[in-house]
Computed example of a mutant assay.
Amino acid sequence: MEKRIAICPGSFDPITKGHLDIIRRASSLFDEVIVLILVNYSKSNTAFTPAERVELARRVTKDMPNVRVDFFGGLLADYASHVGACTLIKGLRAVSDFEYEFQMALTNKKLCPTLETMFMTTDIKYMYLSSSIVREVATMGGDISEFVCPEIIDDIRRRLGPKTEESK
């Protein structure tokens, strides 16, 4: 039987507990889940480099044996074909997410006809959560411990936290 590979794509800038909820649930459905850090060309200013985002994602998924993290700068459909993935996993927080994600699913299907997209709704406790909220709260010196895993809090605070006179 062929190995069933799914991809959870995103910019993950940074990876949140909402992302991890989707990744963990997907890992129970597939033989392998690839957390794929992508370049989002519509988001020109990222807080973390692709290599840093890969490292943060690897740290918080280290206890999930069938999950691995990778980076790709090209078309998602090309990467999926290359690794033999059968499914893209897309997390939805609200109905407003669906229109864009549905359009992307149709585009990926056109580019790679064997590729399916599965939409998973996030757990209700993470419906409000996004990487941009984490970045904003961290920049203002707020508590992000409810939003991200403890393994990466210090990295986020160092990068985004309020600047003191000593750190300027």
Rank of each mutant, 00 (worst) to 15 (best):
1 M>E: 13
4 R>D: 14
12 F>V: 07
13 D>E: 08
15 I>Q: 02
16 T>E: 01
17 K>Y: 10
19 H>Y: 10
19 H>S: 04
19 H>R: 10
22 I>Y: 01
27 S>A: 15
27 S>D: 12
27 S>I: 12
28 S>A: 15
28 S>Y: 15
29 L>Y: 10
31 D>P: 00
32 E>G: 08
32 E>Y: 10
33 V>E: 05
33 V>M: 10
34 I>M: 03
37 I>Q: 00
37 I>V: 14
38 L>V: 01
38 L>M: 05
39 V>E: 14
40 N>R: 01
42 S>T: 14
43 K>F: 04
43 K>Q: 10
44 S>V: 15
44 S>M: 15
45 N>V: 12
47 A>P: 08
48 F>Q: 07
49 T>N: 05
50 P>D: 10
50 P>K: 02
56 L>C: 02
58 R>H: 09
60 V>D: 02
61 T>W: 02
69 V>G: 11
69 V>H: 07
71 F>E: 01
72 F>R: 07
74 G>V: 01
74 G>H: 08
75 L>W: 05
76 L>Q: 00
77 A>Y: 05
78 D>W: 09
79 Y>H: 04
83 V>R: 04
84 G>V: 00
84 G>P: 04
84 G>H: 09
86 C>T: 15
88 L>M: 03
89 I>D: 06
89 I>R: 06
91 G>L: 00
92 L>T: 02
93 R>Y: 05
95 V>C: 00
96 S>E: 09
96 S>M: 00
96 S>R: 08
96 S>V: 13
98 F>C: 03
98 F>H: 05
99 E>T: 04
99 E>A: 07
100 Y>S: 06
101 E>P: 01
102 F>G: 01
103 Q>K: 12
106 L>Y: 13
110 K>S: 13
111 L>K: 02
112 C>N: 14
115 L>V: 01
117 T>H: 02
118 M>I: 13
118 M>T: 10
120 M>Y: 01
121 T>V: 05
122 T>I: 05
123 D>G: 06
126 Y>Q: 11
127 M>W: 10
127 M>Y: 11
128 Y>D: 13
128 Y>L: 13
129 L>S: 00
130 S>C: 08
131 S>C: 12
133 I>S: 07
133 I>H: 10
133 I>G: 09
133 I>W: 06
138 A>Y: 00
139 T>A: 14
140 M>I: 07
142 G>E: 03
143 D>M: 12
144 I>A: 07
145 S>Q: 13
145 S>G: 12
145 S>R: 15
146 E>S: 15
147 F>K: 07
148 V>P: 07
149 C>G: 08
150 P>R: 15
153 I>G: 05
154 D>R: 02
155 D>Q: 15
155 D>Y: 14
156 I>G: 08
156 I>P: 02
158 R>W: 03
161 G>P: 11
161 G>I: 06
162 P>K: 09
163 K>S: 14
165 E>A: 13
166 E>L: 03
166 E>W: 06
167 S>T: 13
